[in-house]
């Protein structure tokens, strides 16, 4: 059995808004990734997936606050550690982050090489400048990035190049887990492919041991990750392999996501293209029962009242719904 690289148990974090209201954007999330595997997380904007990405880093600053749960990276529990230890010994070396808007992720007024230097020095204050430069050059070359980019300011690089530079910097210390938050969403198709290829290469070459890839485009994940999780209103609603999630979604919301997006995969073309009506619930006051009930056409009175647990099925899959898998499959069968 493969080694577990990242294990998250019942992680709950909250946002505090400007008006001092609490928003529980990540609510009892649990997940597990094995060595060499990648996990995709999909959901509409505002479902808490970006907050989950931030929360997984184990390093919290306003307006995000840690509430409960644990994050275990390669057997090490980081959720109880003091922030400065996390900063020095976990961030960048154990777990690394690729931000949503890489366009603005780099300090515009310093050269890339200087930033790389700052990153490495943050973990090894004694690192000597020349070694760092050599190391950065070597890594850029290995990843197929032009070495001259190191001598540029961020503003002088194109969007796709900036994103790839950000990926190179994030992984320069060989973190075990990489969390990529919509790394390709803002890019053109060519750059998007280059970014995804780069991430895959890094997994293959072993620079990173496991990856979480977050996106609002569920079908994109089919090409990128091994497993897929669907998130709704701060909770995981379904999890399975990429194949299962795209061709056999069980949760009404996952199904809605697949049906609302044009999927260039065989077998999905016959499906009707439908949008999910309504908007996600207000997380300042989450609904008592199933959070999707308001927008779910199969919802019963009980769905609105009873909180839903995650239920395992088909061996390695799980979902969060009041209806049985058999019932849902039957209903879906009738619809087609």
């Amino acid at each position: 059995m493969a080694k577990t690289m990242l294990e998250v148990n019942n992680l709950t974090t909250k946002y505090v808004t400007r008006f001092h209201e609490d928003v529980y954007a990540v609510d009892h999330v649990s997940l597990k990734i094995e060595e060499g595997k990648s996990l995709g997380i999909a959901g509409e904007s505002g479902c808490g997936k970006s907050t989950l990405a931030l929360s997984l880093m184990g390093y919290y600053f306003a307006p995000l606050h840690y509430m409960s749960g644990e994050i275990i990276i390669d057997g090490k529990n980081i959720s109880g550690m003091d922030p400065d230890t996390v900063r020095k010994n976990v961030l960048g070396t154990e777990i690394a982050y690729i931000p949503q808007a890489a366009m603005n992720a780099l300090n515009p007024t310093i050269r890339i090489s200087k930033f790389v230097e700052d990153v490495i020095r943050a973990h090894d204050p004694k690192a000597d400048k020349k070694t760092i430069q050599e190391m950065a050059k070597a890594r850029f070359a290995e990843l197929g990035l032009p070495v001259e980019a190191l001598n540029r300011h961020a503003v002088e690089l194109s969007g796709g190049m900036k994103q790839r530079v950000v990926i190179a910097i994030s992984t320069i210390l060989n973190p075990k887990v990489l969390i990529a938050d919509e790394p390709s969403s803002a890019l053109d198709v060519t750059s998007q492919k280059m970014v995804i290829k780069m991430l895959r290469d890094m997994m293959e070459k072993g620079y990173i041991k496991a990856m979480i890839f977050i996106t609002h485009e569920l079908p994109l994940l089919y090409n990128v990750t091994d497993d897929i999780m669907v998130m709704y209103a701060g909770q995981i609603v379904e999890r399975g392999s990429a194949n299962e999630m795209v061709f056999d979604p069980i949760h009404p919301y996952s199904r809605g996501l697949i049906n609302s997006i044009l999927v260039p995969e065989e077998g999905t073309r016959t499906n009707k293209l439908t949008a999910i009506p309504g908007t996600p619930p207000n997380l300042k006051k989450p609904p008592q029962g199933c959070r999707f009930a308001e927008r779910c056409k199969y919802a019963t009175l009980q769905c609105r009242v009873n909180a839903m647990p995650m239920i395992d099925f088909d061996g390695n899959r799980s979902y969060r719904c009041g209806h049985s898998v058999e019932h849902l499959r039957e209903v879906y069968g009738h619809e087609e």
Binding site: A105, L106, A122
Partner: peptide
């Protein structure tokens, strides 16, 4: 509140350095 501040923090860069930026 800029994105580069968040990113730099998640790379483990010290707050003092970020404030300098």
């Amino acid at each position: 509140n800029a994105d580069y501040v968040k990113y730099a923090r998640f790379l483990g860069i010290k707050d003092r350095k970020i404030v300098g930026y």
